[in-house]
Computed example of a mutant assay.
Amino acid sequence: MEKQTAMERYDLHTHTQASDGMNQPAENVRLAKEKGLTGLAITDHDTVAGIAEALLAGKELGLDVVPGIEISTRVGEKDIHVLGYFVDPEDNRFKKRLARLRSVREERNGLIIAKLQQLGLSITLEEVKAGLSRPLRPDESLGRPHIADTLVRKGYVSDMRDAFDRYLAEGKPGYASLPRISPEEAIVWIREAGGVPVLAHPGLYSDDDLVRSIVERGKPAGIEVYHSDHGPEEELRYAAMAEKYGLIVTGGSDYHGVRQGVVFHGDLGGRTAPPGTVERLRQTAAAAWAEGN
Rank of each mutant, 00 (worst) to 15 (best):
D208R: 14
R180M: 14
V152D: 05
A240H: 05
I248P: 00
S253I: 07
P197F: 12
A186E: 02
P183Y: 14
I223C: 06
A193Q: 12
Y226L: 02
G251H: 06
E234C: 08
S177H: 13
L268V: 12
L199E: 12
Y205F: 10
L178H: 02
S177L: 04
V225E: 01
T250S: 11
P197N: 06
R191F: 13
Y238G: 00
E235I: 13
K172P: 00
I223L: 12
D207E: 04
P173L: 06
I147P: 02
V157M: 04
V263W: 03
S177Q: 14
P179M: 09
P183H: 14
V188P: 00
G252W: 06
E279K: 15
P220E: 05
R217D: 06
T150I: 03
A273P: 13
L204R: 13
P145A: 03
K244N: 01
I181G: 00
G246W: 09
S213L: 02
M160Y: 07
L142C: 04
E184Y: 12
P232E: 14
G261F: 11
R259E: 07
P173Y: 10
G218A: 12
K172Y: 03
A242S: 01
V152H: 04
K219N: 11
E233D: 15
P179G: 09
D209R: 13
T272R: 12
Y205H: 03
K172H: 03
S253F: 06
R259F: 15
Y226E: 02
V196N: 08
R271F: 01
E233N: 08
P145N: 04
D229N: 12
S177W: 11
P173T: 06
G194I: 07
R191A: 13
G270F: 09
S213Q: 14
L199G: 11
G246L: 02
G222A: 09
G276K: 10
K172S: 00
G251D: 05
Y245T: 00
S213C: 00
G252V: 05
A239G: 08
R217C: 00
G251C: 04
L199K: 14
R217V: 08
G269H: 09
D149K: 14
K244W: 04
P202S: 08
T250K: 06
I223G: 04
L168S: 05
E185V: 10
A163H: 08
H201K: 11
A221Y: 11
R217Y: 02
D254M: 02
D209H: 08
R191V: 11
Y255W: 11
W189G: 00
F164R: 04
A163Y: 10
E235G: 05
V152I: 14
E216C: 04
R166Y: 09
S158T: 12
P179V: 06
S177F: 13
T150S: 12
R212C: 07
G231W: 05
D149Q: 15
A239V: 00
D159I: 07
T272G: 03
V157K: 03
V258C: 02
T150Y: 02
H230W: 08
V211T: 10
P232Q: 10
E235S: 01
P232W: 12
A273L: 09
I248V: 14
K154H: 13
V225G: 01
M160T: 14
A240Q: 10
V196F: 12
Y175M: 03
P202W: 12
G276F: 11
P220Q: 08
